[in-house]
Simulated scan of single mutants.
Amino acid sequence: MPPAAAAKRKAKPLAATSPSPVKKNAKTTAPAASNDDASALSVQQQCFLQALLSRGIVESEDAEALYREIVEDDAANEFTRFWGEIAVALKFLDLDIRTGKFEGDGKTYMAVVNQGTTEVAKLATRMTPAEIALFRVAMLEILRDDSSAERGIDFMSALNSTELQLTQDASTQDGATQMTQLEKQTQTVQKMSKVVKDAALNDLVAERWLERVDDGRRLTLGPRSFLELREFILAQAPERARARWDKLL
């Protein structure tokens, strides 16, 4: 892709601090586009895509501000079309752009997501197998019941995976296979030292897969998890949490 400097005007970094309040009706899907629209991205669209990919996840209002910087256009109603054309072009690579409101802070986020056929394939490729296993174990423990989904799980329990009580969905046909996979992942996590687990969990928090709450003592799912693993989370979530999250995602 052309470097960001090729854009009409150099894009400013996305704000690291809290932006303006989020607008209502946060759930957004990419608009339809013709084959001609999807055949090639403009330099400005490539610049915007590079910014999204480099940051992993951004607040939607920051993304819109970046769009205005790149295209030098104050017509906010064109923003959805702008990124929608990018999303259409990305479908060839099993990628998409998603937006959704995060319950934890009430803000709307945007990210490029992987729509691969397996949930593990949707995780960030920069993760090691051990980090993926740790995230999977923590995520399923968070989704264990409505209490853990709402309050999160104890951070120290996440460091000591022997305390986690994984659940098996016996109603699914491949339940036994799924449990075997989880057992293997749990064994992988148990072999990690607490120092390594602590570093991995901190990385997952920094990349917004997980969130620290209750003064850092507990872990919940972060906005990136909801964007990247939306279908899986809603399928695995307990009843009250599923009903609540379904309205936001």
Results as ranks from 00 to 15, higher is better:
residue 120 V to D: 14
residue 86 I to K: 12
residue 55 R to G: 11
residue 215 D to V: 03
residue 230 R to Y: 11
residue 199 A to P: 02
residue 90 L to Q: 06
residue 64 E to Y: 09
residue 144 R to A: 14
residue 122 K to C: 07
residue 35 N to T: 08
residue 61 E to P: 07
residue 188 T to I: 03
residue 43 V to G: 05
residue 232 F to L: 15
residue 188 T to W: 00
residue 22 V to M: 10
residue 41 L to F: 00
residue 84 G to Y: 04
residue 2 P to H: 06
residue 50 Q to G: 10
residue 199 A to Q: 09
residue 31 P to R: 05
residue 99 T to D: 00
residue 125 T to A: 14
residue 125 T to G: 14
residue 186 T to Q: 11
residue 35 N to G: 13
residue 54 S to H: 14
residue 150 E to F: 08
residue 178 Q to L: 15
residue 210 L to F: 09
residue 244 R to P: 00
residue 225 S to I: 02
residue 138 A to Y: 00
residue 189 V to Q: 06
residue 167 T to N: 14
residue 166 L to D: 10
residue 184 K to P: 02
residue 64 E to A: 13
residue 102 F to S: 02
residue 140 L to R: 10
residue 2 P to D: 14
residue 34 S to F: 03
residue 26 A to Q: 00
residue 59 E to K: 06
residue 172 T to S: 15
residue 124 A to C: 12
residue 78 E to W: 06
residue 24 K to N: 04
residue 117 T to V: 13
residue 222 G to L: 03
residue 234 L to A: 12
residue 95 L to C: 04
residue 19 P to Q: 02
residue 13 P to L: 07
residue 3 P to N: 07
residue 85 E to I: 14
residue 90 L to W: 02
residue 186 T to N: 13
residue 117 T to F: 07
residue 121 A to G: 11
residue 47 C to L: 03
residue 68 R to S: 15
residue 112 V to I: 14
residue 10 K to P: 03
residue 29 T to Q: 02
residue 200 A to M: 04
residue 124 A to I: 07
residue 178 Q to I: 10
residue 101 K to G: 07
residue 219 L to A: 07
residue 28 T to V: 09
residue 105 D to M: 00
residue 47 C to I: 03
residue 219 L to M: 05
residue 149 A to Y: 11
residue 115 Q to E: 14
residue 154 D to E: 06
residue 41 L to K: 03
residue 74 D to M: 00
residue 88 V to C: 15
residue 240 R to H: 07
residue 15 A to E: 12
residue 13 P to A: 11
residue 65 A to F: 02
residue 110 M to R: 09
residue 104 G to Y: 03
residue 64 E to N: 11
residue 163 E to R: 00
residue 178 Q to P: 01
residue 242 R to C: 07
residue 201 L to Q: 04
residue 189 V to M: 04
residue 17 T to S: 10
residue 7 A to F: 01
residue 1 M to Q: 13
residue 30 A to I: 02
residue 30 A to Q: 09
residue 87 A to R: 09
residue 172 T to Q: 13
residue 232 F to Y: 14
residue 162 T to I: 08
residue 134 L to Y: 00
residue 129 P to S: 05
residue 235 A to C: 01
residue 91 K to M: 10
residue 17 T to N: 09
residue 56 G to K: 06
residue 4 A to I: 02
residue 141 E to F: 02
